[in-house]
């Protein structure tokens, strides 16, 4: 067993577990269960998180490799109970249905918007190519991101280490 310190959604916490424990499980064990498990093999993107500002699949990362890292999950996007503009846009455009892929979609979109504040449709498609939705369809999700552009909305990134 090891114990390491990480910053999870701006809070310094200690994670304890087996060195090979999947970061996905370590995060969910803290009670932050927004991050979901889909395929468990890095294909579907449901477990997407930002690790030191980089989009990664938390199911593919062993606990021992994240010492002193900054982690942002879907819980880190809203300010208190106020959804951020990206989340609101998903609500308005019907970008969420059953909800399993949504946390991953939001995190992947956040990474995309940090890199390309006004992404083209192609950039959105490439940015979300590792995130699968099996119910509402990808069109509404893409539109949720495009909707931010249309409104001329200013999007503020959430990760300090970018």
């Amino acid at each position: 067993m090891i114990q390491i310190e990480v910053t999870l959604n701006s809070k310094k916490i200690k994670l304890k577990g087996h060195p090979m424990e999947r970061l996905l499980d370590s995060i969910r064990n803290t009670g932050a269960i927004g991050t979901k498990e889909g395929c468990g093999e890095g294909e579907c993107g449901a477990c997407s998180i930002l690790l030191d500002g980089k989009l990664v699949n938390s199911c593919l990362i062993p606990l021992a490799q994240v010492e002193a890292c900054e982690i942002i999950t879907v819980e880190g996007l809203a300010e208190g109970k106020k959804l951020n503009s990206l989340q609101q846009s998903f609500l308005q455009c019907g970008g969420a249905q059953c909800g399993i892929c949504t946390p991953g979609m939001l995190i992947a979109s956040t990474y995309l918007l940090n890199k390309f504040p006004i992404p083209s449709r192609e950039e959105i498609k490439e940015g979300l190519a590792g995130n699968f939705c099996r119910c509402t369809g990808h069109t509404k999700i893409i539109e949720s991101i495009e909707n931010l552009n249309k409104k001329g909305c200013h999007y503020e990134g959430v990760c300090s280490k970018l």
Binding site: G42, L55, V56, N57, A108, Y111, G127, A129, G130
Partner: peptide
């Protein structure tokens, strides 16, 4: 190779 999350790791 993979998608962005894989390419980052």
């Amino acid at each position: 190779t993979g998608a962005i999350a894989i390419q980052n790791r």
